[in-house]
Design a protein around this nucleic acid. Structure first.
Length: 349
DNA sequence: GACACGTGGGG
DNA sequence: TCCCCAAGTGT
């Protein structure tokens, strides 16, 4: 048996029973692929169920509001996926008259759909001969063929894509693609791969050279930046607070309390001296209290956010105020969500 | 080409 | 604790 046949044979006997494996509906496959980008199956599965339940068709998704979609996406991260999902659903309904794209070249025109997702949907739903290359594929191919080219370089991307395409069983593209990914996820794992029980262990270059744990090779290391957030959590006498929509960067289009970002940690005295703080409260009579005695460190893949939540009691405000009861309806970051769970014991998403 | 973009699990 | 990394894409 060749490489592909061995993988497919293994796959048919060992694959997990996942909800998107029982359909070739392109909307559902597309949705599952977007959810699973850079996301573990265990983490994404509940979101897949929620989205299918709330938006059974691409039309339902197109008709929803972005806020509704972001609220459902809350906690999953990489929120541009949700925004692009919505944008592309509207594009499919309005520009393509509801007809889902069927080829790699048409699929990749969708926002949020790149080489991987276009290849996956085209092969799984329409049996097109397009090979997927994701993290699993890089790992399986790098090890099996002993390839040391860094995967996150132009040269590596090109080389692995070409090899994957060459190995593709073009009669069973969808099954082949899912087989190699599932094999990478369950057998050829990043740590502690199950080489002793691997169906390919008699022909794996990395195993024969005892270099399994050296592959795949990746270049670069991102530098972690530190940021200092001061959230101004307002309590008015009529039980309102203030929230605003983030307009760019991280958590774009999610809501948060008025934010004062500083160069370093600040105390109450320094907070009150901030220009932005004073413009929030034109009239006097406010009380300020730090909610978290120890700074909250929210860790993201490339930045650590040192956060202080300042509770400010005041009389009445007018702009951007919402009643505390309605705060839970807004999509927020996990940082804000965690705060709300501590601060308002009646807050549930 | 380099960097931004989240969150959570595992070793 | 810290670091890797997970069905990547957009700018």
């Amino acid at each position: 048996m060749n490489f592909s046949n061995q993988l497919i044979s293994w796959y048919l006997q060992n694959k997990r029973n996942l909800p998107w494996r029982s359909t070739i509906n392109p909307y559902k496959i597309w949705l599952s692929e977007i959810i699973l980008q850079q996301t573990r199956v265990d983490q994404g599965t509940e979101y897949y169920y929620k989205f299918i339940e709330n938006f059974p068709t691409v039309n339902d998704l197109a008709l929803a509001s972005e806020e509704q979609i972001l609220k459902l996406w809350q906690g999953l991260g990489y929120y541009s996926r949700a925004r692009n999902l919505h944008f592309s659903a509207k594009y499919i309904m309005n520009e393509l008259y509801g007809e889902f794209p069927k080829t790699y070249n048409e699929l990749i025109k969708l926002k949020g759909v790149g080489d991987y997702t276009a290849s996956a949907v085209a092969s799984i739903c329409f049996n097109k001969a397009t090979a997927v290359v994701d993290g699993n594929v890089y790992r399986v191919l790098a090890r099996y063929f002993g390839i040391h080219t860094p995967t996150n370089t132009t040269k590596g991307i090109k080389e692995f894509k070409q090899l994957a395409q060459q190995l593709l069983d073009t009669k069973n593209s969808g099954t082949h693609n899912q087989a190699i990914m599932e094999f990478g996820a369950l057998m050829c794992k990043p740590k502690n791969p199950i080489c002793s029980n691997c169906p390919l262990n008699d022909s794996c270059v990395a195993l024969s050279e005892k270099r399994v744990n050296e592959l795949p090779v990746k270049e670069n290391k991102i530098k972690i930046k530190k940021r200092y957030f001061n959230y101004i959590v307002i309590e008015t006498e009529d039980n309102n607070t203030k929230i605003v929509k983030r307009e760019k960067g991280i958590w774009k289009n999610l809501y948060e309390f008025p934010l004062i970002e500083t160069e370093s940690l600040i105390d109450e005295k320094q907070l009150i001296e901030q220009q932005e703080f004073n413009t929030l409260f034109k009239t006097g009579n406010i009380t300020v209290k730090l909610f978290n005695d120890s700074v909250v460190i929210h860790k993201l893949s490339h930045q650590h956010i040192y956060t202080k939540f300042w509770i400010v009691k005041t009389q009445i405000l007018t702009d951007y105020t919402v009643h505390w009861k309605t705060v839970k309806k807004y999509p927020v970051s996990t940082l804000i969500h965690n705060f709300l769970n501590q601060y308002k014991t009646n807050y549930f998403f």
